[in-house]
Simulated assay, not measured.
Amino acid sequence: MSKFAISVRGVAKDFPVGDDQIRVLHDINVDVNAGELTYLVGESGSGKTTLISIIAGILYPTEGRVQVFDTEIYDLSDNDLVRFRLANIGFIFQQYNLLPTLTAAENAAIPLIADGMKRSEAVERARALLEKLNIANQADKYPRQLSGGQQQRVAIARALVHEPRLIVCDEPTAALDAKSGRRVMDLLREVALAAERAVIIVTHDNRIFDLADRILAMEDGRITHDGRDKAILMQQETP
């Protein structure tokens, strides 16, 4: 059994550009511990979102292997990978991806409903999480009736509601004011400190840098820094 929550070995990713293939990730090797809040930083285009999408089982690598809690996820069939993601992974997208015909509570409850929980029970559990995120009063509203920050918090609730073992976040505080962003990060940190879970966050938000346990920095599709020295974070600028 691996001592790491996530183990990435030799991961590379190519994307087609015209008749060519452009390599955007180069031989990534990294392990992520459970019970820690790990930040992934770097300039736009450095490969951060591509890497976390591969770790979360959303985007297949061109080369390499990814193990999530002792499961080689790209050895799974497509159907088994979907089931594994549903049971074990929560992904907070930078674009909120809320369903316009569902209320905030119903959107947040989707992973529970998809896993077979009774709809009413799933929605009640989602409401409790929306309350923690300070938007319980928006639970019955539709996405079009919510601000960007409120939609972001609904997306965060959806990622956390089924208590996944791996939570992957792409700029979770980008649309939030300082107070709301701190509330979200306090919740994510509370989740991350559980010994059986791992949280990876892509961010440029220097308001929350002090909460990181570990920093991975990327440049040109490669990891250039891996450590616990937060000084590197203070060199990053919030866009």
Score class of each variant (00 low, 15 high):
Ala87Ser: 05
Ala139Lys: 01
Arg165Val: 02
Pro143Phe: 06
Val82Ser: 14
Ala128Glu: 13
Glu190Tyr: 02
Ala128Pro: 06
Asn97Met: 08
Asn137Thr: 13
Ala175Ser: 15
Arg125Ile: 08
Asn137Gln: 12
Gly148His: 14
Thr103Cys: 11
Arg144Leu: 11
Lys179Leu: 15
Glu106Gly: 06
Ile113Val: 04
Pro172Arg: 01
Arg183Tyr: 10
Leu187Asp: 10
Arg183Val: 12
Leu146Gly: 09
Gln138Glu: 14
Phe93Ile: 06
Leu176Asn: 12
Leu98Gln: 13
Arg144Asn: 12
Asn107His: 05
Ala178Leu: 08
Leu146Thr: 01
Arg144Ser: 14
Glu106Arg: 03
Ala87Pro: 02
Pro172Glu: 07
Ala87Ile: 00
Lys118Glu: 09
Arg119Tyr: 04
Met185Ser: 06
Ala87Asn: 11
Leu133Trp: 08
Cys169Pro: 08
Ser147Asp: 13
Ile92Thr: 05
Gln95Pro: 13
Glu121Asn: 11
Thr103Lys: 13
Gln145Ser: 02
His162Cys: 00
Ala136Trp: 10
Ile89Gly: 09
Ile89Ser: 04
Thr173Leu: 00
Leu99His: 09
Met185Val: 06
Glu190Thr: 05
Thr101Gly: 11
Leu129Gln: 04
Ala108Leu: 01
Gln95Cys: 08
Tyr142Met: 07
Glu106Trp: 03
Ala178Lys: 14
Asn137Trp: 11
Asn88Arg: 07
Gly148Phe: 13
Asp170Ala: 03
Val82Thr: 14
Gly148Glu: 12
Glu131Ala: 12
Ala159His: 09
Ala155Asn: 10
Ile135Arg: 09
Arg165Lys: 15
Arg144Cys: 10
Gln95Asn: 14
Arg127His: 06
Val168His: 12
Arg182His: 11
Gln95Ala: 11
Glu131Thr: 04
Asn107Asp: 00
Val154Arg: 05
Pro100Ala: 09
Leu146Ile: 07
Ala155Phe: 12
Arg158Val: 02
Lys141Leu: 02
Arg189His: 02
Gly90Val: 04
Asp170Trp: 04
Gln150Ser: 10
Glu131His: 12
Asn137Phe: 13
Ile110Glu: 01
Ala175Thr: 12
Val184Ile: 05
Leu102Pro: 04
Pro111Lys: 02
Arg182Cys: 03
Leu188Met: 08
Leu160Gly: 03
Ala139Ser: 09
Ala155Gln: 09
